[in-house]
Amino acid sequence: MAKIELKDIRKSFGAVEVIKGVSLDIRSGEFMVFVGPSGCGKSTLLRLISGLEDITAGEMSFDGQVVNALTPSKRGIAMVFQSYALYPHMTVYENMAFGLTLEKGKPKEEIKKRVHRAAEMLQISDYLDRLPKQLSGGQRQRVAIGRAITRDPRVFLFDEPLSNLDAALRVATRIEIAKLHESMRDTTMVYVTHDQVEAMTLADRICVLRDGLVEQVGTPMELYEKPDSMFVAGFIGSPKMNFISGKLAEGFNAPTVGVRGEHLVIKPSDGVWSGEVIHSENLGSDSYIYVNVGSEEPVVVREDGATKHAVGEHVEIAPIDGRVHRFDKAGKPIR
């Protein structure tokens, strides 16, 4: 159980400021995902929370207690690293028990009990005697998670834990982590990823970062439906939101409008925009139709099922009512 409060947190490496003043509350027991493009500072922010990196300025507290100066272990955090970072010379059991054996006066029996409980949770009980090099990538990732669980942390940190796994395993492990969150309702989890699908599927709330600053914090649906900026609107959702500006947006009384592909329909006539189909992608369940309406980039329309529109066809498109996002010149939403 820990509520994490960040107050104007800054971090510089030499002359370069990477985190430029982040204030954020992470609720107790919440699954918070930091997402953003590479170089936005999300990993650094996680490392500041972990205590592996020094905070340059600002105040961080766990449950009201300032932790700026505390070591990671005193903060009660556990972390799952991108490369798993298992101790290569220790068995799975030793890997998971290592942190507990360092705590003075922990009875062996209790350590054993906790390791076995975590191992059962992750179904790795059969591998406890093996060395990391004898395990597959997915199994190593489970051990890394198990090691973190064993420590029974107040705060559970994940640093892009799925990026070393192949696509199929990534989905499976994602579900695993979601279940883990269900069963550890008391533990606050902070998760860093550059993959917005991971963010959308796992998060209670998402924090979008850009250039060392927070762009927006909210539930996945809030970010999807009410993005606070063009950046967030463009970052969340797949396919990317279409932005149309200039003359083509005049009808909406805004410099720029944004519409998601799934909120556009192709009509035989009376569309808001019109143009030629220049490309279409058929995914089976749905399809993306790229239409050149005269904006900078082609507009992508998402349709259910296989598309009936061929390349070269002239189509009219219109947004669904209430699904148009209007943005001012600074990229802020007009509501």
């Binding site: 990671p72 955090i77 490369s83 970072a85 298992l86 101790y87 010379h89 290592f98 360092l102 705590e103």
Partner: peptide, 27 residues
């Protein structure tokens, strides 16, 4: 030696001396 292994040990509460003795020396 990979930096993440050392960081994992720090998170586990290992002091520099413990890191040398129980993590780095065996490696």
């Amino acid at each position: 030696l990979p930096i993440e292994i050392e960081e994992a040990a720090i998170v586990d509460g290992a002091t520099p001396w413990v890191i040398i003795r129980r993590v780095f020396m065996p490696l």
